[in-house]
Every structure is written in C-alpha cells, then in structure tokens.
C-alpha cells in the first residue's frame, strides 16, 4: 500500500492509489465480511479431506466419506430403475399388442421408447424415425418386412442381414454386374418400374421393360410391383424409395444393388427395451 493520506473534502483516508490525479477513498470491508470470507476458505480445506481431491502417481486421495461420482451415478440409476419397476414388470409380462391396447402402458412406452430410440436408433433412422437414403423411414406407411407390432418387434430383435440365424435376410441379384441383363434391358426395366407409380416419361421404353420385369423382377417384387414382405422385397409402385426414386438411381440398384444391415438388438437391449422400441416405432405413424 502506498502512502495513505486524508482526503480534504470528506475527511476520510485514501487507499494511496492514484490514477491521473484521481485518488480512491479507502472503504474497508466490514470485519464480519472478512471473517465470513476466511471461513469459506477454511471450509474449503474440509472438502480436500472429505472428498476425493488430490491426484497421486497411481491413484488419488479417496476422501473420508469415499464419495465417487461413478458409484453415485450407479445408485441413482438403480433407484430410477427401481422406481420404473411398477411399469417395467407389467411390460415384461405383456405382449406388444397388449401394451398398445392399454392407454397407460402405451403412453409409458411411447415416452420411454423415444429415449431409447434417440440413444440407439437415431444415428441411422433419424431423430424422428424419418430415415435417410439407405435407411428406411419408420414414420411412413411403407414397410419392407411388415409394420405390425409383432413384425417390427422381430426386426428389432434379430436385425436385418446381421448374421443372426433368425435375422431377416434378402438379396437382390446383381443383374448388371453379373451379366444377367444387358445395359439396355436394365434401362427399360427401370423405366417400367417408374411407370408402376405413374412416373414414367417414356412409354415405349416402359413397354419394352415390362417383359424384362416380368421375367426377372416380378417373382419377388410382384406383377404390379406391390412388393413382398415375406421376402423383404420393397414395393416399387409407391412414392417411397429407399435409395433414389429417379431412373439413374433405379438403374444403379438393379446393376449393383446395395444391401443395408441392421444389427441384432437382442442381447444389446433387454426385452423390456425392445418392446418399448417396438411400440414406439409403431406409434410414429405408420404402424399397422
């Protein structure tokens, strides 16, 4: 502290600091304020003793009460799951159809399923199940493997082309790459596929493609392109496309098909979670 002096106007001491001729009056803190401040510092030493505080070479000081955020989280999660038991027990004992028919269970499952969906499904299928190219939209009314509660549950449980023995498997032949069809035939077939949903612009090509389609595609996708859920063959006569709905996209999928994979969730998620997810996905709007 510099030299303090008495201010002539107020008769009070200055702090001795001076800025461009301006001096600051000394306004000391009340004593109790200083004591409270010191008390908070003393209090902080208590934290070092009671809680984990100092890192060491191979560990850290554990503190007197042995507090641990991870253990505390475990306890909280345990308590939360205990609190949910009144619901989860009922869900474990019910089928997905029974859950969807009970307004209380339905409300619980939609709320719980939303969280599970965000944690497990949203990276591929989108936050609201809106999908992405190659990843089916779960909110619409078009289903490759079926949109009933039970079929959705089965798809979630075992996955698609996941390697599980109960997984849903289908394969579209590589018509172009394996030389099964000529390039012109593929182009005509693609035009015919577009015509199934009324999107064709070349009637002659579409007519030529009808024969190719009947001989090569109709066995799985159906004469009218309605698809076949037993085989996982998507409908081709609607406005929904998994990859692309333009001619080039269809040609590409016939020439060198892409096949999506969905993991097996059985074993990763418990049975209750799979049921919650099934009901939630069914509730997104496309459930049958």
């Amino acid at each position: 502290m510099g030299s303090t002096e008495r201010d002539a106007v107020t008769g009070r001491e200055t702090t001795g600091h001076e800025w461009d001729g301006i001096k600051e009056l000394n306004t000391p803190l009340p004593k109790w304020w200083v004591y409270v401040f010191i008390a908070t510092i003393v209090w902080s030493f208590g934290y070092w003793v009671v809680y984990p505080a100092w890192p060491g070479i191979s560990g850290y000081t554990k503190g007197l009460i042995g507090y641990n955020t991870r253990a505390s989280l475990d306890e909280t999660m345990q308590a939360a799951s205990e609190a949910r038991r009144q619901w989860t027990d009922r869900i474990a004992a019910s089928s997905v159809e029974e859950i969807a028919a009970d307004p209380d269970l339905l409300a619980y499952s939609v709320a719980g399923g939303r969280t599970l969906f965000a944690e497990n499904c949203a990276p591929c299928h989108g936050a609201g199940g809106e999908g992405a190219p190659g990843y089916p939209n779960l909110a619409d009314d078009s289903w490759m493997w079926g949109g009933e509660l039970a079929t959705i549950e089965q798809t979630i449980r075992y996955g698609v082309r996941s390697g599980h023995e109960s997984a849903r498997v289908s394969e579209m032949p590589r018509f172009g790459l394996d030389g099964l069809l000529e390039r012109g035939q593929i182009s005509d077939a693609a035009e015919h596929v577009l015509s199934l949903s009324g999107a064709s612009t070349d009637a002659a090509a579409a007519a030529r493609g009808a024969t190719v389609y009947a001989e090569n595609c109709a066995s799985c996708h159906g004469e009218t392109g309605a698809g076949n859920r037993e085989l996982g063959a998507p409908a081709l006569n609607d406005a929904i496309w998994l990859y692309a709905g333009d001619k080039a996209g269809i040609e590409q999928q016939v020439t060198k098909p892409r096949h999506g994979v969905m993991p097996t969730w059985s074993g990763r998620l418990d049975e209750v979670s799979i049921k919650l997810l099934s009901v939630y996905v069914h509730s997104l709007g496309g459930g049958e």
Binding site: A127, G128, N137, D140, D141, A235, D238, A239, I240, G286
Partner: peptide, 18 residues
C-alpha cells in the same frame, strides 16, 4: 408440431404431419 421429421411422405404420395 413435430420437428423431426417436419412431414412424412406416405406411399400414395400424400403428406402427413405429426
């Protein structure tokens, strides 16, 4: 109104909002 997805296109081309 739902934010994700903002709308859903159904197989017959109609548009649905949740």
């Amino acid at each position: 109104p739902d934010r994700a997805p903002v709308f859903v296109r159904l197989s017959d081309g109609s548009i649905r909002n949740g």
